[in-house]
């Protein structure tokens, strides 16, 4: 049985029109005009237990609306949705016992209290038996290396430390489904790696089904085999990261650094993506010219110091897919 099934989910919002200027604002006090926004326009997908899925899309595409429906916060206009065999918006209390939610921008910890006190409070909120709680907490704390921080008030933690504590907090009741909303936003490189490592282990060893929304494509590349892309309220792509690359573009990048005196002349089969001093990034289509042939040609005609072939960054691919999907 799938952990999550979503079918034809529709959610519209009524948004008050804002009229420009002071006069417009005054008018708006007395008479408002509304227009309807279809935040979700027939979203559908399903997740198997233990999957770690990247849920991506531009701002306002419907990412957080989907997560809010799945988490039982919002009631949709129509459509079917089952999470772990339950309809999220019916019997909210029973549903949310099984899920964990991390909002990257907002902490769920008590700001002025030591970390350990927040954990203890969550034990009581979720009514976790003490023995199970202590075992889960100690295991998570050890995995994320939080032992020395437990007695520190949350307000004194760095963002990276706080995020790791927040992740522990969301897992203390052993949820079967975890929502991570921008869990690496604003983190330093070391903390990002620690968080990613931990999430991979969590998924591999405990089989927690995880939905990750993020703008950080490195998160996606490091963590997710499957990507669901939402745009304008409907699913624009659902598949592996490789398929996503292939669907948008076959292109590769060749970065060349010339020795002194090398100046670029126009070449067939390639276009310059960017240049920086002696360093040029060229895009080419391997169906027109094989990488080996291109390198041989460039090396023969220019004084080359260094060469690198790579895939275009995932951001570029995503940006292109967003464009392609414009109505």
């Amino acid at each position: 049985m799938p952990a999550v099934v979503v079918q034809d989910l529709v959610k519209t919002f009524r948004v008050a029109e804002r009229r420009p200027g002071l006069l417009g604002a005054m008018k708006g006090l007395f008479h408002r005009e509304y227009h309807t926004v279809r935040a979700l326009d027939g979203v559908g997908f399903s997740l198997q237990p233990g999957e770690l899925v990247g849920y991506i899309g531009p701002n306002g595409a419907g990412k957080s609306t989907t997560v809010k429906v799945l988490a039982g916060i919002l009631v949709p206009d129509s459509g079917r949705c089952e999470v772990l065999g339950q309809v999220p918006w019916q019997e909210r209390v029973r549903h949310v016992r099984n899920i964990g939610v991390v909002f990257g921008q907002r902490t769920q910890l008590w700001w002025d209290l030591p970390v350990i006190e927040s954990f203890d409070l969550l034990r009581d909120i979720y009514a976790v038996p003490q023995v199970q709680y202590a075992a889960t907490r100690d295991e998570l704390v050890a995995l994320l290396g939080l032992g020395p921080l437990l007695d520190t008030p949350v307000r004194q933690l760095s963002l990276g430390q706080r995020m790791r504590c927040d992740i522990v907090a969301s897992l203390l009741h052993r949820p079967a489904l975890l929502f991570l909303d921008e869990p690496t936003i604003g983190l330093d490189a070391v903390s990002k790696l620690a968080v990613r490592d931990f999430l991979l282990r969590l998924q591999r060893e405990q089989g927690v089904t995880t939905i990750l929304t993020t703008h950080d494509m490195d998160d996606i590349e490091a963590l997710c085999t499957r990507v669901i892309l939402i745009n304008h309220g409907s699913i624009a792509f659902d598949g592996t990261l490789e398929a996503l690359r292939g669907r948008v573009t076959q292109e590769r990048y060749l970065t060349v650094e010339f020795a002194d005196g090398g100046a670029w002349r126009d070449e067939p089969d390639v276009t310059v993506v960017r240049s920086n001093g002696q360093r040029y990034t060229l895009s080419f289509d391997p169906r027109q010219i094989a990488a080996a042939d291109l390198i041989a040609r460039i090396a023969a005609r220019y004084p080359v110091r260094d060469l690198l072939v790579e895939n275009p960054p995932i951001e570029t691919i995503i940006a292109r897919l967003y464009d392609e999907d414009q109505p």
Binding site: K68, A71, G72, I73, R92, I99, F103, I125
Partner: peptide, 10 residues
């Protein structure tokens, strides 16, 4: 947006 947090607690 903290009310969302309250809604995801049982």
């Amino acid at each position: 947006g903290d009310f969302d947090r309250l809604l995801v607690r049982p």
